[in-house]
Structures are given as C-alpha cells and as structure tokens.
Design a protein around this nucleic acid. Structure first.
Length: 383
DNA sequence: AACGCGGGGCC
DNA sequence: GGCCCAGCGTT
C-alpha cells in the first residue's frame, strides 16, 4: 500500500472522510444528471457508455449510445457484427480502436464467459480495451464493487482537495490518486461516489471557468481554503500537432462513379474509406509555404505519382477547391484537392479500391477529413 | 515513459 | 488559434 505521507498528502481522519462522503453523495442525489446509462443496470449498456465517454463529452455521446444499443442490443450482436457496421455506428466519435477493442472483448465474453458480462474486477480488467479507469467504473456502477475509477475529472478534483503537487498528466502519478480513492470511496455506494466525483469535476470543478464557491465540498478543499485554486491541478503543456500536407484526388469515371480506397488495417483511421491521398514531399504550413514555382513542380510531380501508383491515366481538371484542414490530437492535415476524370473503369486487384456512385456513399464509413473533402468538392461543383 | 490514436466545445 | 476532455494499447 502506497504511503501518501511520502507524497506530502495528509489524508483525513475517518470522521472527516465520512462527512465528505455524505456531503458529496447528498449533493449527487439532489443534482445528478438524468443520463440514459443511469437508467439501466445492464453491464453491457454501462460498458458501451463508458467506452464512448473516453475522451468524449456527454452531449456528444448520448445519440451515439442510443443508436449503438438499438442496432447491437446484446454482447452476442456486437461479437458477430461486420466491421463496416461497427465503424458506421462509431463514425464521427473518433478513437476508432475503441470499438474494435469492444468487439474483441465481446468475442472474449462469448468464448470465455458464456456470453455473459464478467462480474469480478479481475475478469472485467482482462477484457480488451478495458483499462484501470473503465474497469473501476464498470465494477462500481454495474456491480456495486468498491473499486475506484480514476479519470481526469477525479484527479483534478482530488488535486485541489489535497493540493497534490504531482503532475496529473504523468501516468506514474496515477497511483497516488488511486491510493487516495481507496480510502475515500464510499463502500456502500461506490458507483454513485465515483459518478458524483466525475459530475463535480465536469461541471463545478471544470478545467476552465470552475465555480469552486458552488462546490458542495468546498469546506474540504485545501486549495479553496488556502486560495491556491489557480495552481491545481499540476499539468504539463501538451505538444502541438505536426503539420502534414497531402494532395487529395477526387477521381471520377465515365459512369460518374468516384474512386475510393480503404485504409490499411494499421494506423490512423484504419478500415475507413477515403478519396486517394498522397503526402506531399515537402511540409507546407502557413508559416513555411513553398515558393509558387516550387508549388507548381510539386503539383505536376504528385499527379505523375498518382498515375504511377494507381496505374491509371487521368484527365486533370482545372477546377480549384478550398483547402481542407483537419486537426487531430497529434497531426494537422492540410489537403489540396484536384479533380480528375479517369479514362478507364478497371482497377488493379491488388489494392482495396472501388468505384462508388454518390448514392452508395452512406454505406461506407467516412472519417471527418474525408467528409470535409467531399463537402469542399460539392461546394465548388454547385457554384 | 512516450507515443499513437479523433473529434468537438469553449474561450 | 489554443485550450480542454468519463483512456487504452503498443513499444
């Protein structure tokens, strides 16, 4: 057991811990949000909600949650769903490995747990895509087990309550908050206790514009009482996304179908379909833009590359399109579009390429950058 | 321990 | 434009 004193944290005496639990849970009982996953005890549904809520806001999740459970109401349904179906259900949520891992976990449950959701913390933790936070959340919420669920909200709230001088962004420091929670958590209502801390952290104790004076536990908060709220939580700044320049190819054939390519199984947006993209040799950011002459050379060069790579002769159109920009957490894509008319409708068998008519687009999973590419194309064509 | 992995809301 | 977020798996 980790000694909190070594980290400069004076844990409260038992009476104060009990008073804190009561203050927090009384507030939760009076103020908790009415969310769809709080109306069920089905561990499968609670699991779906917890995975969707990873790095994703409540308001964004709600419609996805309803639709997902409507189409895949049971573990068995998820285990046997085709890839395109699960990607379409997750389309727009991001971090798509979440849903792939969920399907693997569903298959684990079919194989190892007779198709039932496992009921112990160790078994739940053994499922693909379920890490320490999610294991604690499901254990406590669905099975009433006294397991902490330490997420960003909880670390922010606790770091203010106890003036924790350790960076909440460093994985190694998670154990400090885990140890604190093992003492604080209400053994009778662990799920409500965890959710109360998260509700508190996402609203009143939010990262920006917090309202600490409205907190039901402000009298317990060392940072509030000492006037050090601005200092906590300690968190190192993040790195900026790296700019990457692409040429995007909107290629049409004489049957008015468009060329789509399926992304590789590994890497960013795997399994999604895209208009062909080739990375430009040089980085073109706003600040380090190439000279105009060089830009022309790059254009000619990359169209030649397309012809070779896709083994397809193309009649390039003069039309110019808006540049598409999309920012991921770690990459900043800038996509210049060009339109071409292919002189053939045949395709090599080696790549995952298809000619697709516009009315069939809804069948294919498209991530946000590809949606933006199509919007830019349509916008110009309608002018 | 660091990195890869989306997307949207808010200021 | 920059900040934030109900994290996990891989290396």
């Amino acid at each position: 057991m980790l000694d909190l004193k070594e980290y400069g944290i004076d844990m409260w005496p038992k009476e104060k811990v009990q008073a804190f639990r009561k203050a927090l849970l009384d507030w939760y009982d009076a103020n908790k949000r009415d969310l769809p996953w709080r109306r069920t005890r089905d561990p499968y549904a609670i699991w779906v909600s917890e995975i969707m809520l990873q790095q994703t806001r409540v308001d964004t999740v709600i419609p996805y949650y309803e639709r997902f459970l409507h189409h895949l109401p049971t573990i068995a349904d998820l285990a046997k769903a085709p890839e395109e179906v699960i990607l379409k259900l997750w389309e727009g949520l991001g971090y798509y490995s979440r849903v792939r891992n969920m399907q693997q976990a569903a298959q684990q449950m079919v194989d190892d747990f007779a198709g039932q959701f496992p009921t112990t913390h160790a078994e739940i933790s053994s499922l693909k895509g379920i890490g320490p936070y999610t294991a604690g959340a499901i254990s406590s919420i669905a099975f009433n087990l006294p397991e902490p669920a330490v997420d960003g909200n909880v670390m922010r709230v606790l770091s203010r309550l106890f003036e924790v001088d350790y960076d909440i962004g460093l994985p190694t420091n998670r154990k400090i908050f885990q140890a604190m929670m093992e003492i604080l958590i209400d053994p009778d209502r662990p799920g409500d206790f965890n959710q109360a801390l998260m509700d508190l952290g996402s609203d009143i104790e939010s990262p920006v514009n917090p309202r600490p004076q409205d907190s039901p536990v402000k009298d317990f908060s060392a940072a509030y009482l000492n006037g050090t709220m601005d200092k906590y939580p300690i968190k190192a700044p993040k790195k900026k996304p790296v700019p990457v320049a692409y040429q995007g190819f909107i290629i049409r054939n004489k049957d008015n179908q468009f060329l789509l390519e399926k992304n590789n199984e590994a890497g960013l947006l795997s399994g999604f379909w895209s208009f062909p993209l080739l990375e430009k040799g040089a980085v073109v950011d706003k600040q380090v833009s190439l000279f105009e002459v060089a830009e022309e050379v790059v254009q000619l060069d990359i169209r030649q590359s397309f012809t070779e790579y896709y083994d397809m002769a193309v009649d390039w159109q003069k039309q110019e399109f808006d540049t598409v920009q999309h920012i991921f957490s770690h990459r900043k894509w800038q996509i210049e579009l060009v339109e071409g008319v292919a002189e053939t409708t045949k395709l090599l068998g080696t790549k995952e390429l298809k000619w697709v008519s516009v009315e069939d687009f809804p069948i294919y999973p498209f991530a946000k950058p590809q949606q933006k590419m199509w919007e830019a194309y349509v916008k110009k064509m309608e002018q």
